[in-house]
Design a protein around this nucleic acid. Structure first.
Lengths: 183, 183
DNA sequence: CACATTGCTGAACACATTGTTCAATTACAT
DNA sequence: ATGTAATTGAACAATGTGTTCAGCAATGTG
């Protein structure tokens, strides 16, 4: 990809994240993004069809990053994912979030857009489904699988949201514990 | 309140609900509401400052209705809320929703606006907090109260959403059971 | 019934935002 | 160095927002 394109794309993402940390998705205008990114109007529209697509593409990119990073570490340090700590996938994810490399935590904060959370939940759902054996129990047998998966995923998302609203005071370990207690 | 005002207000609400059952809040325009309600533009704005306020006021009115109705039945048929079925408050709420008197179910459906769900959750949170003793357990002792309340409330909302997405095939009793199993 | 009050109307208005177009300019890759 | 491709900025139509106002209609009060 052309260096100019990369630069522009990066500038738009950065500007967008900056704005999202201040106000709702709904009340951000393309004009503001353009100003913040310091690019021409036509340039924006040559990159993204609409503001909604921008959010969508950015979400996908961010979640790819974080889940790819997790998989990589999974491959390198296999010991982290041993049988003695099967819940570590989620601890690991929370630790990643805590680093806030790509401002994901800021973006997930509830004052910001629900759409972003929706994309997060979607990606998370796949992870949960792949780790379903972790959550087998007396109650899971009595519940429809789709209900159960949705419950676990939602609980994780809500745990993260609660954590953020509490200014991420608790350690990732504590939050992981809360999550597994609640679910 | 003037009969004309009541009629107009009702017409706006009805039109709004009709539109919300078809498309997202975000893509409904004031013009559409006006057409559907068959009123003048100035009239709309003399009733509601913006589209957002319309949603807010309508939500409050709907939730007042349903929670008032519940309290009334609570007073009249005290036996429904006896000690043998302490969970019946939630069963009762679900039964109310199932009746769909005010199209609340339709409005809660996830394809529609998150703002509406937010208002629902807010009202529900108060109910949950007042019924907190129902949910005391080993795990609730180990979790911060605010986390616990949020978890219960979210689980209820997610249960309802899952139910709706499944076309409310299950009976209110079954859904109540799922909720109490999950939480 | 007559009256003053209040609400409704609908058109016109200024304003903001969106998404497109285009010709001129600039940066890129090889 | 050159052809290719991205960026620019201004101008554009189209749509939506929220306000204003003068005229009309419904209300309920005496």
């Amino acid at each position: 990809m052309d260096r100019r394109q990369r630069k522009t794309r990066e500038a738009i993402f950065t500007a967008f994240i900056e704005l999202l940390s201040k106000k709702d998705f709904a009340q951000i205008t393309v004009g503001e993004i353009i100003n913040q990114a310091d690019i021409g109007r036509a340039t924006f529209y040559s990159h993204f069809e609409t503001k909604d697509f921008l959010l969508k593409e950015m979400s996908e990119e961010l979640f790819c990053h974080i889940f790819d990073a997790m998989n990589e570490e999974k491959a390198n340090h296999r010991h982290i994912f041993d049988c003695n700590a099967p819940e570590s996938v989620f601890l690991h994810l929370i630790q990643h979030l805590k680093k806030n490399d790509n401002n994901i935590l800021e973006l997930l904060s509830s004052q910001n857009n629900e759409l972003f959370l929706q994309y997060f939940k979607q990606n998370l759902g796949e992870l949960v489904a792949s780790q379903l054996t972790l959550f087998e129990s007396r109650k899971s047998e009595k519940l429809p699988e789709s209900f159960w998966i949705n419950h676990i995923t939602s609980t994780f998302v809500e745990t993260i949201k609660w954590w953020i609203d509490n200014d991420t005071r608790e350690s990732p370990e504590t939050i992981t514990e809360y999550f597994f207690l609640a679910v």
